[in-house]
Design a protein around this nucleic acid. Structure first.
Lengths: 210, 210
DNA sequence: CGACGTGTTGAAGTCCCTCAAGCCTGGTGG
DNA sequence: CCACCAGGCTTGAGGGACTTCAACACGTCG
């Protein structure tokens, strides 16, 4: 699937079960006045069960880049799960993981501020990868829709984190985390670390960490 | 369990699986500066699988009223699920339902305004019940934490909906929906219906729907 | 090259949060 | 039975964070 491509309701009725092999799949909701939100992201290994949701107003599955998926009809899925204990556990854990992620995400959206949301998201990205390098598999607009903010605010938040020397943007979709503990504190909502901008407002020259 | 009572990490390690029989259980997250959020609500029939989450920082399960739960150890659960196809399906559907609800909730929190969130929540409540009467099984404070707003804003939103003749508060936790379609439109984020307050600002006398 | 979509920047507006105070209800004890 | 208290709920004013709108920079693709 290419970016922007959507899975139609008809397809969902035939193959409501699917596994993401590569790329990122998004579950998008559209409000009546055009506001768009990305309710969830599905990555490699996620097994999505949309049975009974093709017709209901539950949002649309849309690819956010080149995405590979493996689709299954309900009977095929049932057969595999019922006869293969390992597959059963994999499917269960994937679903459980999705539920957890969705709840965590809801908690992030609920009371956190823009900067805190972004910091949380960076940690969420990092879970799939290693080291201090983070790859963001979304455009700014999609990221904004996922975090419940505007693209402008996302941009400003990135700039803010960079100005404080917490992260270093290497390209539009790659960055490095320079100050792990501070980023973690921001993600956890510690207001004390938030307002101290590397002594900038005290009149110091910004340190320009290269 | 009484209101405010929490399930400890030790208990979760022994019985990470539980089913809610009565009442409401909440999954709460606490930010470092004291902000509290309710990431998810569990009601009658929900089967919660917290394996591997007792120790991790994933939030706490806290009762929001008198709540009955049935706890299981992992092995017991596995045995039941593996040997009883019906139980397996029930558990799977419950988990899938939770994931869906969490994603919907995340979408609600992301870009909706206070009034729209509250309207959505009323429909979420109604799903468990019937008719146009809605029982809210939470205090205002908990509702605020769940919807990502302040108790004051919740109060104001209720008042707003009532002033427009869309709902009628019968008691603190019971209300009736008077204007279904409008409430639905608000929940879906239709900005046009939001600012027209029954012609109040046009100088008309409010219609006082009895 | 010019058109397009995305990303960034700046200024003005708005919704919600914050704080402070008063009100109401349910439980307790005299 | 009623005064009393505590916690939750409500109401009001003021400020802050994000949104909105508009304009510009940048890379891609026709």
């Amino acid at each position: 699937m290419q970016r922007g491509e959507s899975i139609t309701s008809e397809e969902l009725l035939i193959w409501p079960i699917m596994a993401v092999t590569t790329g990122v799949l998004s579950l998008q909701h559209l409000l009546e006045d055009g506001r768009k939100t990305i309710a969830a992201l599905f990555m490699q290994g996620d097994i999505i069960d949309m049975r009974g949701m093709g017709n209901r107003q539950r949002g649309h599955l849309i690819a956010l880049g080149k995405t590979g998926i493996c689709r299954l009809a309900p009977q095929e899925f049932e057969t595999v799960v019922d006869h293969n204990l390992g597959a059963h556990k994999v499917a269960w854990n994937s679903l459980r993981n999705q539920a957890c992620r969705a709840m965590d995400h809801a908690a992030d959206l609920a009371k956190k501020q823009a900067l805190e949301k972004l910091a949380s998201f960076l940690f969420e990205c990092r879970r799939h990868q290693a080291e201090d390098r983070v790859h963001i598999p979304l455009r700014r607009i999609d990221l904004a829709d996922y975090l419940g903010m505007q693209p402008e605010t996302v941009s400003r938040s990135f700039k803010d984190l960079q100005a404080r020397g917490i992260i270093a943007l290497e390209s539009i979709s790659n960055l490095r985390i320079l100050d792990f503990p501070t980023l973690r504190r921001i993600a956890n909502g510690d207001k004390n670390t938030q307002n101290q901008r590397q002594g900038q407002e005290a009149g110091f020259k910004p340190a320009k960490i290269s």
